[in-house]
Nucleic acid binder design. Structure first.
Lengths: 204, 204
DNA sequence: TTATGATTTGACTACTTGGTCAGGTTGCAC
DNA sequence: GTGCAACCTGACCAAGTAGTCAAATCATAA
């Protein structure tokens, strides 16, 4: 059940993986235009021509990362079960999203960079898959609200608020840590804070 | 009561202003490394050498923007009155911040870009002015919570949540609009949604 | 072992970009 | 109007960057 059979040999698999990891490092920290192939090559431990042996261009590496990202990014929302208990489902979604901010901050920043620049390479995915999924889940949440099982909230802005609050801890990590000081654990604290916030928001 | 008397002649005032406006456009949309002096010069309607007649370097323009930004950015929080009615003060702060996202989205994105890249040119301001102010206001909020005048919430994460929720509508504007479709007004809706959210969060 | 294709690289090109500079033009105080 | 400083620009340079390529090296099936 593996994906595209592109990486065939052992060396290919190892090197494409090293390149993508290095590119994720550099793109997420510098943005697309700020990143250079030399930086990526150095982080990956390869020469620049060798890097271009595996990918045809800088843009192709970036697109490969973005392409794979959308699915991962939407998985937690997709997992929200219309048949489940409403508040538990929404809380669980928020928790999974916060977990992703902790475990995948580079991916979060890559995504944030892309949207900040106007999503020039992701508009299709946003207007397509993402919007479709959000419309779908918003309808589910609306039904829960209409049935009085959660407080009446605009489902779209509820989803936006989960995105904003969880991604903030990844995207603005340096600011959060600078303000909190070195002895506090932002993500652990965010967990309890957001639990309370959404409990209070959603209680019917 | 004017600031530094740097721009003296009429022409200087007009051109430095045009340059800073253009630079705000370009830096906020492309990031520091993604922006080019040629782009800024074109938007400003000046030649590149002329632009460098007014500012010594690309970096200097960027620093000028960032330097002026911190004060503007913190003004709403600074205006939160310890002697006021707690919930009204916090709600008003949130509203002012949302208003800034609507009125100054370029500044918001400039700031977001900077933090995303690890705040290489703003760390001092963040660890200094910003942290000091947040510590100060967090103490005020904590006192309000201790006195039972608002629900017991972590004041730092309360402030983070206001930042995250309001700035999201500026920084992720294209995503929000793509999901909501062309006929909805994100900021108007955010106003009522966030009103309700913080009312519910803060009620003792 | 050896042949063959996969992998790697040094050297290179074309182009972009931040910044310089000598000299020209313009605004304005007198 | 004239002189001088402020303002502006075309032409240029050095550094950096994406991408190419011919040739060298390596892995491995037979």
């Amino acid at each position: 059940m593996n994906e595209t059979p592109r990486p065939q040999t052992r060396i290919q698999r190892r090197n494409t993986e090293a390149i993508l990891q290095a590119a994720l490092d550099v793109f997420s920290a510098q943005g697309f235009r700020g990143a250079t192939l030399d930086q990526i090559a150095e982080v990956a431990g390869l020469s620049k021509p060798n890097l271009l042996y595996y990918f045809p261009s800088k843009e192709a590496i970036h697109l490969e990362l973005l392409g794979g990202l959308m699915d991962v990014w939407l998985a937690p929302l997709r997992a929200m079960d219309p048949a489940g208990e409403p508040r538990a489902e929404i809380m669980a979604y928020m928790r999974r999203k916060l977990e992703m901010s902790r475990e995948m901050p580079r991916e979060s920043r890559l995504f944030a960079n892309e949207i900040l620049q106007g999503a020039p390479r992701m508009m299709a995915g946003i207007e397509g898959d993402l919007k479709t999924l959000v419309d779908d889940k918003a309808a589910v949440i609306q039904a829960w609200a209409d049935a009085g099982r959660i407080a009446p909230v605009d489902p779209y802005h509820l989803i936006f608020s989960i995105w904003a609050l969880t991604q903030h801890y990844a995207d603005f990590d340096v600011q959060v840590r600078a303000v909190l000081g070195p002895d506090r654990d932002p993500f652990a604290e965010a967990g309890s804070f957001l639990d309370m916030l959404f409990e209070r928001l959603l209680a019917p």
